[in-house]
């Protein structure tokens, strides 16, 4: 487990679905197309914990998001 999160800015997200393609193990789409944490037990649904192997795909998702709604961030202590 790395020490980063994928932060979703819901005020920007439009549910275009690129991130769910790039991170299929972490994100699924809800009824309206918005990214939904695949792990239903997660408390914080806006900051998805990333494994070390997820980081490249997460960085790509953040770079490609058409709405600039994603950011890979260091987890808060």
């Amino acid at each position: 487990m790395s020490r980063t999160n994928l932060h979703i800015d819901w005020t920007r997200c439009d549910g275009r679905g690129l991130c769910t393609e790039l991170l299929p193990d972490l994100l699924v789409r809800d009824d309206w197309g918005y990214p939904l944490a695949a792990d239903p037990s997660l408390d914080d649904k806006s900051n998805i914990p990333l494994g070390r192997d997820d980081e490249p795909a997460a960085a790509e998702a953040a770079a490609l998001c058409p709405r600039l709604a994603l950011a890979v961030r260091r987890r808060r202590p």
Binding site: W10, T11, P40, K45, S46
Partner: peptide
């Protein structure tokens, strides 16, 4: 409810 809660600014 699960789809809505916790997913906003």
């Amino acid at each position: 409810g699960l789809l809505t809660a916790g997913r906003g600014a």
